[in-house]
Amino acid sequence: MTAMADPSALEFDQVTFGYGRLPVLREASLRIAEGEFVAVVGPNGSGKTTLMRLGLGLLQPSHGVVRLFGADVSRFRDRWRLGYVPQRASAATSLPVSVAEVVRTGLAGQLRPGRRGTRRHRERLEHVLDLMGLTAVRRQRLSELSGGQQQRALIARALVTGPRLLVLDEPTTGVDAEARAILRESLEHLVTVEGIAVVYVSHDPEGFAGMADRVVEVRAGRLVRVDPQAPAPTSQSV
């Protein structure tokens, strides 16, 4: 780990990435501080999901460095500090899985083989189920819930370790208005009360309107800063 005085939650330093010869990101630089809410926007295929996957260590940059809490992402070990909410399509399962089981899988990286969760783990599980309003449906099949409830189950899974950085990928896709309102309320609580850094990847600005400290657009493989209050994007360095 690289020790830093005041490390960012997530930092991209001159990151370049491509699939084969096809460049997707070029010299992207971005710092996200703890407690900051950053929205990443861009049309489909612009590279915003690639940016997110690089940030989570699911892809390795061809050039440049990605740091999580000051450490190179490839050597980052404190995985409990990360929460990842994939697109809801990943909740489609072949087999039945209950809400509590889905949320519990968020703890799997913290458990040693042969060990079950501690009392603290169980308390965290109860806490996030309550926080996301899922206690009453904890034993239900995930596939039987509404789109909004499924989304909240995926968020609860991401929060169960008590992360300091939450990354959400298109969290409002296929979610009704009521669920969007609950999601918005939950995110505001996480940022303002718990001080969690949030990266919100979406093509839909309505989902984060009024909440984002910064909006970053991925445009032709480069990052441009957008004023969250501005109606149209303006190109600035990020």
Binding site: L56, G57, L58, R77, R79, W80, L82, Y84, P86, S90, T93, V97, V102, T105, G106, L107, A108, G109, Q110, R157, A158, T161
Partner: peptide, 10 residues
């Protein structure tokens, strides 16, 4: 259930 999420979780 979700290989990518499992990897992110450690």
């Amino acid at each position: 259930f979700d290989e990518a999420a499992a990897r992110v979780a450690g």
